[in-house]
Amino acid sequence: MKSSVIIFPGSNCDRDMDVALKKFGFKNQMVWHNDQSIPKSDLIVLPGGFSYGDYLRCGSIASKSKIIKSVIDFANSGGLVLGICNGFQILTETGLLSGILQQNKYLNFICKNVYVKVKDKKNKYFKNIKKDILELHIAHNEGNYFCSDDEKKSLEDNNQIAVTYCDEKGAETDENNPNGAVKNIAGIFNEKKNVLGMMPHPERMIDKYLSGEDGSLFFENLLGNIK
């Protein structure tokens, strides 16, 4: 299985993602934002970081970069596109995902482990995953998901909410909502569920000695579903 990680100026989780994808068996290649096209891939990843210094709005400049047209075409033809953190912000700015990530409600940069609940398993990313609640890492200043009431209703009606912030038992309470996101949303799909954007970083949880292994579950499962 082949994957491509797009590097923007200011991306800083691209190498971590590369390590994670290779660890679980993807043949990964790195693609520069100024390239015109993406090599043949089963999965495209937009990594975390601070593309273009977060100028104007997080992800807005990257969403107009040269490579993005190929990403949009790939997504529209049904290809799997995964955006983590800044990658999620870029996906909302391209319009592939609805809504926007605003500054965290309490204006602080949050860097900690959180629990998220898997809300939908009828998709390539979470089908067959062994756990319903994953412990993952978040690190962001703009993770406060916001969308219009109409968009919220359509996300709920089509089961497009992918993961939500919760406690270790799965209760989606205000106390466990780190950034003020609507409905505790940590990640969403597009309508066809081939595009996933989420704030938590699975690539940071792939080693039982350094972090935790719930990210491993995510990648192993994803690879299994693509094969």
Partner: peptide
Amino acid sequence: KLLANLVI
């Protein structure tokens, strides 16, 4: 197209 995000 760029300067404003009309969602918010």
